[in-house]
Amino acid sequence: MQSRPVCAASRPHRWMWWFVLGLLWMTGCAQPARQIAAEEPAWSGRIALQVEDQSSQSFSAMFELHGNAQNGGLVLLSPLGSRLAQLDWQNGHAQLQSGQETRSSDSLDSLLQEVTGTRIPIEALFGWLQGVQVSATGWQADLSGIASGRLTARRDDPAPKATLRIALTR
């Protein structure tokens, strides 16, 4: 008995099934979009922080930041886009969500330090991102690359020394 050749057009393409499965997987991992007011400042990109102490800590993530030092939010994302942490603040109250754990505080600085491992001058950071040289104790910001989306800030005092690098995507 001789088998008949099957027309390639009549059988489903395996690559199409893999494409559909991949699309479903990516949709399942997607994070819902947050609503941000059109006039509210917002930035996204990559952030890296290196703290030079005995253990020489470093931290790197993609980020989305919106608002200002009084009311805003920061989302830290892994290279694959999954949410590592979300920090929201408003009216002197801050909330950090990391994994299944949620913590609240009256101090945005303490929760931000918990996430990054060191104090970051949040008020100055918002100024720097807008290209304004804002003074922050111990920190020196290099805004020469801000027009091309690059920001570097260094803290020499108080110890430990720290370097913050930001590369903006929008």
Rank of each mutant, 00 (worst) to 15 (best):
A38K: 09
E39W: 06
E39A: 14
E39C: 03
E39Y: 06
E39K: 10
E40A: 13
E40W: 07
E40Q: 15
P41F: 05
P41G: 12
A42G: 09
A42V: 09
A42I: 07
S44T: 11
G45A: 09
R46E: 08
R46C: 00
R46L: 01
R46S: 04
R46F: 00
R46H: 02
R46A: 05
I47Q: 02
A48F: 04
A48D: 04
A48W: 04
Q50H: 12
Q50L: 07
V51I: 15
V51P: 05
E52W: 03
E52P: 01
D53G: 14
D53V: 02
D53N: 14
Q54D: 11
Q54M: 06
Q54A: 14
S55P: 00
S55M: 03
S56Y: 01
S56R: 12
S56G: 02
S56N: 08
S56F: 02
S56K: 08
Q57L: 09
S58C: 03
F59K: 05
F59H: 10
S60E: 12
S60R: 08
S60I: 05
S60T: 10
S60A: 15
A61I: 07
A61Q: 11
M62E: 09
M62A: 11
F63L: 10
F63V: 09
F63S: 04
F63N: 04
E64G: 12
E64D: 12
E64P: 02
E64L: 13
H66A: 13
H66R: 08
H66P: 00
H66V: 03
H66L: 02
H66E: 12
G67H: 04
G67V: 07
N68E: 10
N68W: 06
N68F: 06
N68L: 07
A69M: 00
A69H: 00
A69Y: 00
N71M: 07
N71E: 12
N71Y: 03
N71W: 03
N71I: 09
G73S: 15
G73W: 09
G73H: 10
G73R: 15
G73L: 11
G73P: 12
L74A: 07
L74D: 05
V75K: 05
L76K: 01
L76N: 02
L76F: 11
L76W: 04
L77F: 13
S78T: 15
L80D: 03
L80K: 05
L80A: 12
L80Y: 08
L80P: 02
G81D: 00
G81M: 00
G81K: 01
S82T: 11
S82F: 02
R83E: 15
R83W: 06
L84K: 14
L84A: 14
L84D: 08
L84S: 14
L84P: 06
A85G: 06
Q86M: 03
Q86L: 01
L87A: 10
L87M: 10
W89P: 13
W89Y: 11
W89F: 10
W89Q: 07
W89N: 08
W89L: 07
Q90L: 13
Q90Y: 13
N91A: 15
N91F: 03
G92Y: 04
G92P: 02
G92E: 04
H93V: 14
A94L: 10
A94V: 11
A94H: 11
A94M: 10
A94P: 12
Q95S: 15
Q95E: 15
L96P: 01
L96A: 01
Q97I: 08
Q97S: 14
Q97T: 15
S98Y: 00
G99D: 08
G99L: 06
G99V: 03
Q100L: 02
E101A: 02
